[in-house]
Design a protein around this nucleic acid. Structure first.
Length: 506
RNA sequence: GGCCCCAUCGACUAGUGGUUAGGUCACUUCCCUUUCAAGGAAGCGGGACGAGUUCGAAUCUCGUUGGGGUCACCA
């Protein structure tokens, strides 16, 4: 295991559609491990199943990785010295190595039809046996019962054939895994796996070994579902006489009922979470923590990608599956928002607002609400109250749009007989304020309430309702300052008109 | 079913023979507060079970149970 070269890891998905969040985590761990050791992170597309190809899926995978900030050093799009990085473009290589195996009597041709194999399998299952290839076509020269002449005959006739690896009998295959230790398999439980399919494409097992070798992959970090087929891969490395990579099988991501995370029980595609408004920072942070922790002494929960680089280590990856918990993800999202500067947030809000303005009219000057100063002010007031960036525009829409409705319950509770009159009277005082700042507004309200002999709460709540339509939100006086005198007075007037008929319940 | 993996609060986890078993999310209560948050304080709640090793086990061993993965010309 003397790996003297630089660390090279890879993410090797098949292009069958979306990117699974479990896949994102696998990609992340590979990326982090490579970066941590000054190595390279490679993306390889495993499109050896012609029947499952989804157009555009490979492109999509690379887009999602880029969205996540996990930029591969080598990939189909970016190229590299070990390409091509798409397996369907490497068919000649698999064929070449397969022929080598046949010549060395480590693999053999098999002409059994899929129907025939299915029948054998059924029979074995009926008898309570492990379904396995019956070695019908294993040549006599390799310890089987098929005469060489028959094989030659079949070969010459051109009937469809596959190539199978010959698993040695009676040996123990050891898989060394940095997460799980040494796992042993009896070769009797390993099937003579098909290496090359009838259509000339390799199976995963051949392709992964050949490519990992040729691409000089040093560490194979992948999902636990691969652990039980790893002995096949180990055997192939031994057949070829190649140095094996270091294996690390990471635990699975689970549904709330502890079954493997699946589409049925919620969203599994990274794209789904992007659509919901989750940021790359939060998703990466969350997924990193599902199965990994910074180790004893550290209680850090919020990480940037850069911090993960520095701290990641395979030693702190756990062994048991982890449930994908939306609540914690949401909390992490919120924490990441809080850690951003107001200016950063302003720049994130602007496109969302711009989008909203396409379908919604605003009574405020567009130059004002789209300005950096305005958005920074909104960000400052709202950053501790939102869970998603888009909530700056939806949750606190009153910063950008006049309220159309007023919370019914709150109006019932806060609107009294004299509320409209008081509001109008105070509004007139606001008009006259020389400086429309939070502190000026606050002292104006205090003295106003004193002069009227009422509690400030009797004004504070109605004003908030009149201006925002909501019973909750940021500091009232700061909110008013941001909105500006014109908008505030206009909205107060509008509210008194609209809520005129309501005071009976008070 | 065979083989393999796994097992600490509801969830994510720290812990590697001696700890009052710690933290975070969620939940509850209190404080702060014009609201909502945020913040502060507290609470709730845990080593699947049974043996063994040991002066001493969440930590080591074995068994049981439970969960998961895998048994394709899919990855």
């Amino acid at each position: 295991m003397a790996i003297s070269d630089t660390v090279r890891t890879r993410f090797a998905p098949s292009p069958t559609g979306y990117v699974h969040v479990g896949g994102l985590r696998t990609a992340l761990y590979n990326y982090l491990f490579a970066k941590k050791h000054g190595g390279k992170f490679i993306l390889r597309i495993e499109d050896t199943d012609q029947t499952r190809l989804v157009p555009g899926a490979a492109e999509n995978i690379e887009n999602v990785l880029e969205w996540a900030g996990l930029i591969p050093d080598e990939s189909p799009r970016r190229g590299g010295d070990f390409g091509p990085y798409t397996q369907s473009q490497r068919l000649h290589l698999y064929k070449h190595y397969c022929e080598q195996l046949i010549a060395e009597k480590k693999a053999y041709y098999c002409f059994s039809t899929p129907e025939e194999l299915e029948e054998v399998r059924k029979l074995q299952q009926k008898q309570g046996l492990q379904p396995k290839y019956n070695r019908k076509w294993l040549p006599e020269s390799m310890g089987g019962s098929m005469p060489e002449s028959k094989i030659k005959e079949a070969l010459d006739s051109g009937i469809p054939k596959v190539v199978r690896m010959k698993v040695p009998d009676g040996i123990t295959i050891k898989v060394h895994d940095v997460i799980r230790g040494t796992v042993e398999f009896d070769s009797a439980v390993v099937d003579d796996q098909v290496l090359l399919k009838a259509d000339g494409f390799p199976t995963y097992h051949l392709a992964v070994v050949v490519d990992d070798y040729l691409m000089k992959i040093t560490h194979v970090i992948r999902g636990e579902e691969w652990l039980s087929s790893t002995p096949k891969h180990v055997l192939l490395y031994e057949f070829f006489g190649w140095e094996k990579p270091v294996y690390a099988h990471v635990p699975l991501l689970l549904n709330p009922d502890r079954t493997k995370l699946s589409k049925r029980q919620g969203d599994v595609a990274v794209e789904d979470y992007i659509k919901k408004g989750f940021s790359r920072d939060a998703l990466i942070n969350f997924v990193a923590l599902l199965g990994w922790n910074p180790g004893s002494g550290s209680e850090q929960e919020i990480f940037t990608l850069e911090e993960l680089h520095e701290q990641f280590s395979l030693e702190h990856v756990g062994k048991s599956g982890a449930i994908f918990n939306l609540e914690k993800l949401s909390w992490i999202e919120k924490e990441h928002i809080r850690r951003k500067s107001d200016k950063e947030l302003a720049n994130l809000i602007r496109p969302i607002l711009s989008d909203a303005l396409k379908t919604r009219q605003t009574e405020l000057p567009i130059e004002t609400i789209m300005s950096e100063d305005y958005l920074i002010a909104v960000a400052r007031e709202m950053k501790e109250r939102v869970h998603f960036i888009h909530e700056f525009v939806t949750f606190s829409s009153y910063f950008f749009f006049e309220p159309e409705t007023y919370e019914e319950e709150a109006v019932k509770k806060r609107w009294k007989e004299n509320t409209n009159a008081l509001l109008l009277a105070f509004s007139a005082q606001l008009e006259a304020l020389p400086a429309f700042t939070a502190s000026e507004i606050e002292s104006a309200l205090k003295s106003f309430c004193e002069s009227k002999g009422i509690k400030t709460a009797e004004m504070v709540h109605p004003i908030r309702l009149a201006v925002s339509g909501a019973s909750f939100g940021p500091s009232l006086f700061h909110m008013l300052e941001i909105l500006g005198k014109d908008a505030v007075c206009r909205r107060i007037k509008r509210a008194t008109e609209r809520l005129k008929a309501e005071p009976t319940t008070a």
